[in-house]
Design a binder for these strands. Structure first.
Lengths: 336, 336
DNA sequence: TACAATAGGTTTAAGGTTAAACCTCTCTCA
DNA sequence: TGAGAGAGGTTTAACCTTAAACCTATTGTA
């Protein structure tokens, strides 16, 4: 392994001078020496040791991407195509600025603290439900933190979010405008304190605005897997009054649509469906799904921008971005 | 920040003794001292500094997950739901054994070498096309390396792969057995030296076996995005003799099916389609897609097992696993 | 002539952890 | 009574890098 000392020896200068040249603090070094050092670095293949650098500078160039999961074994956050799109964008942006990305799914606040201290993490992206103990454990940190889709908002932290409430409100309102009055709601969870809860509130708000009484018997809480979707579509059979359905994820909407078709219901003739996200599946199912689009890559890019700006000390105009959604009309909704 | 010295001071022993206790090398330490040290660690909230540990031991507890991409900007490997499923499985397994996962997309072999040396990476997962210079740059490394879906196989490295050839052969043969003789092939690439090339060869082998002449004008190389799929489905219109199509990815198959439907072709009546992977989309499109199933989570788990075994020095019976595929018959194929 | 300023560096210490070598006391046993 | 072994540690040095303080020779200036 080639160290900075080897470069120093090869060029006849001290290690400090080499270090200074590497970091561009070379106003006190002659052009000739700089040249020699750079040549030696290339020839000998010197690569800095991040551990040593991190040890002495208390800064590691590591950015953590932390997801809070209730259980690591049952929820694999990378399986969610959204998270993975975000992670990809972030990795690319960080790389170009010399940072490294370390992934971590944590179940407990202690795990998070250990992770942070272990690595002297320079910054943190946080996704998943993150409140109470978790929030406290990062609240005192003196590193940039960027939340993604958090609804525990404080002016002290950056957050990149989405108009979840408005998106879901618009989805519901779209059905109402098409003449629907009996509109169900399907979602993996509605009280998670996060995006799904907001979407639920948006649904309720649109109903209330149209003076449609809320009926909790047509709120279907189930997982997104195909078996759970089948349960929802069976439940729907028991509510022949339903003519519309708002679903908080396209994947779930697709699963429910398949189940409904098996049960002999036609979409949109018997029931209209609106999804959420506009993942590629939305265009590929039959009929193509009317849905609420969000731009996941943009979310990742903005999150990375926040992080890089805070890392470089650039003052921020704002600590928060809430991305808009857009209703994409396809063929899964029929006017009554 | 609490260091090992603080613990030493608090318990009245030396730092080395604390270190030994932490690492279980405590056969020369009294039970009482061990007790005191552990209590102090908890009370003061000591967490080891990985940089210091890594510096002195040349082992970092960091495992790299490296993907080779031609261009970081155009290919975001995390967007592939397969890669992300694998990454999720691996992260969970590594965590339970005290390892950390660092993601890296590399464009050049130099980037890879820099990454490795930067962090004293303890092990490496490698995906993506990886040959020539890339292969050379890891060939001399003395750390466990686990390839995923590599076809540059050597007895010295672990590989977790899939029966790509056989899977594709079976897909094609299935169509042949159903009476099809004019079978097209659609794939993002067929000469990548990786899984897609193998699948192409499997297709050709099945044709040859049935004495069906290979016709390169019905091999469609296009991207997996919806626009590219549209191009394929338009091309297919120019080949009315086609009655079957083998596609190397379900997502692409779904895109092509949508395009074909727009073009007035019915599936499977006008053309039969077989996909590959069996992602959830396959069940959700209309008609449900006949496809070649592979188990991505298992791939990730086996890759993690290989890594953990090699890290712990357990001798391996085998360095290579090739997972089987399974033909899943749904409704996108019709007997002629 | 005397002093300051500048160019171009060097030396030293520190960061947290651990491997290797070393130490000392007590007990056992011939 | 004296050697040896074992218990229970300690001391030292090293891993690589960098920040802070320090040094020396030359040139410029009043």
């Amino acid at each position: 392994m080639v160290t900075i000392r080897d470069i120093a020896q090869a060029t006849g200068v001290s290690a400090t001078t080499v270090s200074n040249v590497i970091h561009g603090k070379d106003n006190r070094v002659s052009a000739e020496t700089i040249q020699k050092i750079n040549t030696a670095i290339k020839q000998l293949g010197y690569v800095p040791n991040m551990s040593a650098r991190s040890l002495v500078s208390s800064s590691s160039k590591v950015i953590g991407f932390v997801n809070h999961a209730i259980s690591r074994r049952t929820t694999n956050f990378m399986e969610d195509p959204f998270h993975s799109a975000i992670v990809g964008e972030i990795e690319a942006a960080l790389f170009e600025n010399g940072y490294y990305l370390m992934l971590r799914t944590v179940e407990t606040a202690e795990e998070l603290v250990t992770f942070l201290q272990n690595w002297n993490v320079d910054g943190l992206f946080i996704t998943g439900i993150f409140k109470d103990k978790f929030f406290d454990s990062v609240a005192g940190l003196n590193i940039p933190i960027v939340f993604i889709d958090s609804y525990v908002r404080t002016p002290r932290f950056c957050n990149v979010g989405l108009e979840d409430f408005t998106g879901s409100y618009n989805a519901t309102r779209h059905l109402i405008e098409k003449g629907h009055r009996h509109i169900g709601f399907a979602s993996p969870s509605i009280k998670d304190g996060g995006v799904l809860q907001e979407r639920f509130l948006g649904y309720k708000a649109a109903l209330a605005e149209a003076s449609i009484p809320f009926d909790k018997s047509i709120v279907f809480q189930q997982g997104m897997d195909i078996a759970s979707c089948k349960i929802v579509s069976d439940e729907i059979l028991k509510h022949p009054e339903l003519t519309g359905l708002v679903v908080t994820a396209d994947l779930m909407a697709a699963g429910i649509m398949t189940g409904l078709r098996v049960n002999g219901l036609r979409i949109p003739d018997d029931i209209s469906v609106v999804g959420f996200d506009d993942i590629n599946i939305a265009q590929l199912v039959t009929p193509p799904l009317t849905t609420i689009r969000q731009d996941m890559s943009l979310k990742g890019r903005l999150a990375a921008d926040f992080m890089l700006q805070r890392l470089s000390g650039t003052p921020l105009d704002t600590m928060e971005v809430t991305l808009p959604t857009k209703l994409i009309e396809r063929d899964s909704v029929k006017a009554l």
